[in-house]
Amino acid sequence: MKDSEIKRLLSAHIFCVFSIILTTVVPSLFLENFSVLGTHLTWLCICSICVTIVNIILYIIFKPNPSSKRISFAHKVTRFLKCCVYFFISCILFHGIIVLYGAPLIESVLETFLFAVLLSTFTTLQCLCMLGPNIQAWIRVFSKNGAMSIWDNSLQITTMCSIVGAWLGAFPIPLDWDRPWQIWPISCSLGATFGYVAGLIIAPLWIYWNRKKLTYKSR
């Protein structure tokens, strides 16, 4: 059973990776002068939207945490609205944290905010898809023995990789290399994206490697 789960996870992740690669290639067919570095803001929007859509589709297809009880439609709608609110709050929070870490406060607000949105799609959106708007569950998942399925584990890995990638992306900014990708927030958003992709690839491999050691508590 576990192997089949891992295969499902792997296929989902590969799908995600492809979607990100497509966002860098496909828009140049429709939009003139499109490039990831040149028109970075457009790419940020496209990438966020694309990853959001793919994640939601994957969630609908794979249903990682199936619950047995049936949920009414009204409940679903409130849940969805709650998710939207959470997502928005997380964008604001990320924006605040990024500014506190040293991003410019007033100039390039839009860039910073879009970067926050990208980070939210890589982290919060996944949590919302997998765990629903349930903070307790989130805190449970992000602790040492809190994972209850391989989906939780992959969630841990991708989220951390994205954030670490964004963090590492800040390091080239002070260097005097005069490269276009050193401009705020390109290096950070690229770092986050690379981190996310790395997380997507690492997660199934890591789980496969440690499949003997991983034991999950039942809920």
Binding site: I139, F142, S143, K144, N145, G146
Partner: peptide, 9 residues
């Protein structure tokens, strides 16, 4: 601390 579950346990 959060990872080791010391925050809310």
């Amino acid at each position: 601390l959060l990872w080791h579950g010391r925050l809310l346990a």
